[in-house]
């Protein structure tokens, strides 16, 4: 997904000289092609994320379209106030990009787990939040950037995630994207953990539960009407994300349904409210958090039986 992002961005930057890629010393080899093609649209500010956002804001104020890229929490939480005041308060056209969403950097430990970013970015005014599930969704998100004003946040996976979609989805309305038809329960997923959702849906089909599976790469602005409509005829919505339950995608869906007074049963599957206390890979840490495929299967089965 990282490579897909960089390839799409490079094409865009070749057509639009306002696009400037700004990094804080992350992107070894990943940025090489961009730098070779457009050295004057590239800037490595050093290991200085707060400056990265401030500099991006300044450039955006003169009409540039900066893309501030780093890893994990470095481009978001490290410089949260710069994002809040310099970007969001001034509604500046800067895209913040983080590679390694969720538990992707599992063994590197809690400092490198990006598991609160959706909540924090979502809470900021003017900010748009995207979490693509595969390379095609990622490209579709990049293609939204030129026509979407103001600050934006893209939460990338790591790399080489399996491709989910046959064709590039149209994300212009922010609607969820159908992955698999089903009639009993609707499963809405953000990010690369969709691969587990697919396995779960296949297994649940064997158990006689028909899962309608969608991805929802546009988290803010949330198209709640499209989400409601997508769940029509099923017993309810299960959300799945690699993010803390508090303030994440599932939480966004619940808030929006409540605001509209739409009474649809929702089961939000997300990470526990705890810093990972054990060392382990992404798969291992998912297991520890009740997000392994077998847990997802049994939790969906229980939910479907109960509603």
């Amino acid at each position: 997904m990282r490579d897909a992002f960089m390839a799409a961005l490079t094409e865009q930057a070749q057509q639009d000289s306002r696009v400037n890629l700004i990094i804080a010393d992350i992107g070894f080899k990943v940025v090489d092609d961009f730098v070779a093609k457009m050295p004057d649209q590239f800037l490595n500010v050093g290991i200085a994320e707060q400056a990265m956002i401030g500099v991006a804001a300044g450039m955006a104020s003169l009409g540039k379209r900066p893309i501030a890229y780093s890893l994990g929490n470095f481009p978001t939480i490290r410089c949260l106030e710069q994002i809040r005041n310099d970007l969001c308060y001034h509604d500046l056209n800067v895209t913040v990009v983080s590679v390694g969403a969720g538990l992707a950097y599992g063994t590197l430990g809690y400092t490198h787990h990006a598991v609160e970013d959706i909540a924090l970015m979502r809470a900021l005014p003017n900010m748009k939040v995207y979490s693509p599930a595969d390379a095609l969704e990622c490209r579709a998100v990049v293609e939204l950037l030129p026509t979407t004003p103001g600050p934006k946040y893209i939460r990338l996976g790591k790399n080489r995630e399996p491709r989910i979609h046959e064709v590039q989805p149209d994300l212009s309305a922010g609607a969820p994207v159908l992955v698999r038809e089903g009639s009993d329960v609707t499963l809405m997923v953000v990010g690369p953990i969709v691969t587990q959702a697919i396995e779960a849906a296949q297994e649940l089909a064997k158990q006689g539960i028909s899962v309608r599976l969608l991805t929802c790469p546009v988290i803010k602005p949330l198209n709640i009407t499209a989400i409601r409509d997508a769940a029509t005829g099923t017993a309810g919505i299960v959300t799945l994300e690699e993010h803390t339950l508090m303030g994440g995608f599932g939480s966004a869906v619940l808030e929006a349904l409540a605001v509209h007074g739409w009474r649809i049963p929702v089961l939000p599957l997300a990470l526990d409210d705890a810093a990972a206390s054990t060392v382990g890979s992404q798969e291992y840490l998912r297991e520890q958090n009740g997000l392994a495929t077998h847990s997802v299967i049994s939790r969906i089965a229980d939910f479907t039986a109960s509603v």
Binding site: T107, L108, G109, Y110, T111, H112, S277, T278, V279, G280, S281, Y284
Partner: peptide, 16 residues
Amino acid sequence: YCVDGAPLGGHVTAHG
């Protein structure tokens, strides 16, 4: 080092 469930991970930690 960095094995699932092992004590030592990829960054220095005071946890354990």
